[in-house]
Amino acid sequence: MSSATERETGDRAVESDSGDIGTVRELGHDEFDPIGTLILIAIYFAILVMLWLFMYFVEFLGNGPTVVGSLATVVGLA
């Protein structure tokens, strides 16, 4: 599986200089689970949710008078 992928990426791709950047092992698609990525992105998700709730319900809805529509229009023009 992974060897097919490598052929696909062609001769200009990464293999040629992999030695320069300290590769100690080759990991194919099926041998690699990005668990660290999952953890990082879960932390990001949590931050996003908390900040969103804070911004919307505290900063925005708590920010004094707000535009509530044009209920007075009908009366105003009458």
Partner: peptide, 11 residues
């Protein structure tokens, strides 16, 4: 260095 770009795990 050679002019290259990244290969792919899932191509």
């Amino acid at each position: 260095p050679d002019n290259t770009y990244a290969g792919t795990l899932s191509g």
